[in-house]
Simulated assay, not measured.
Amino acid sequence: MSPTLRGKTLFITGASRGIGKAIAIRAARDGANVAVVAKTAAPDPRLPGTIYSAAEEIEAAGGRALPLVVDVREESQVQAAVERCVEHFGGIDILINNASAIALTRTPETSMKRYDLMMDINVRGTFLCSRLCHPHLSRSSNPHILTLSPPLDLQRKWFAPHAAYTTSKFAMSLLAHGMAAELAVDGIAVNALWPRTLIATAALNVANEGGRERARKPQIMADAAHWILTRDSRNCSGNFFIDECVLRAAGVTDFAAYLLTPGVEPLIDLFVEEAAAGPNTTRQGSAPAAVGS
Rank of each mutant, 00 (worst) to 15 (best):
A101K: 02
A256N: 09
S138I: 07
H144R: 03
L260V: 15
P45Q: 11
I96E: 13
A180I: 00
A22T: 05
L137F: 06
I220K: 02
A35D: 03
F159W: 15
K217Y: 02
L198Y: 06
V86P: 05
I102S: 14
G49T: 05
M172F: 08
V190I: 00
A256C: 02
A275K: 12
M179G: 08
V37N: 10
I242T: 13
S111R: 07
A99C: 02
A215V: 07
A24V: 09
T261P: 03
Y52K: 08
V291R: 02
A22M: 06
M179Y: 12
V72A: 04
L128A: 01
P67M: 06
P195D: 04
E75N: 05
I199Q: 01
G62A: 14
F271A: 11
Q219S: 15
A289L: 11
I58A: 03
A22P: 08
I96D: 13
E274T: 13
L68F: 06
N142P: 00
P43E: 05
H226S: 04
L183K: 00
S293K: 05
I25A: 03
C245R: 12
W194C: 08
N280P: 09
I25G: 05
R6H: 13
A222P: 02
G292Y: 03
A184F: 11
L5V: 06
A164I: 13
N239D: 12
M118V: 05
C133S: 11
P218H: 00
R106N: 10
A28T: 09
F271H: 11
T230G: 06
D120S: 14
D254K: 10
L146Q: 05
L132Q: 07
P195Q: 12
L66P: 01
A275V: 15
L95Q: 03
E74F: 04
F127Q: 11
E59L: 08
A65I: 10
L66K: 01
P266C: 12
E56G: 14
K8W: 01
F159E: 10
P3D: 00
I23V: 05
D153L: 06
W194E: 01
G292A: 13
V206E: 14
A163K: 07
C133P: 01
L47F: 14
D223R: 07
P262G: 07
M179R: 10
I145N: 01
E57K: 10
R283C: 12
G210H: 03
G31E: 00
S168E: 11
Q219Y: 07
L198N: 09
G278W: 04
S293W: 02
A287M: 02
I51T: 09
L154N: 11
D116W: 09
P143S: 06
H226W: 03
D93N: 13
Q155A: 15
W194F: 13
I188K: 05
S16Q: 14
A176W: 03
A184L: 04
A275P: 09
T253K: 01
E74G: 02
R131K: 15
S286F: 07
A35Q: 01
E265G: 05
K39F: 08
E87P: 03
N235Q: 15
F89A: 02
D93L: 07
A28M: 09
Y115N: 11
S149Y: 07
A15E: 07
T167K: 02
I228T: 06
I19M: 11
E182M: 10
N208Y: 14
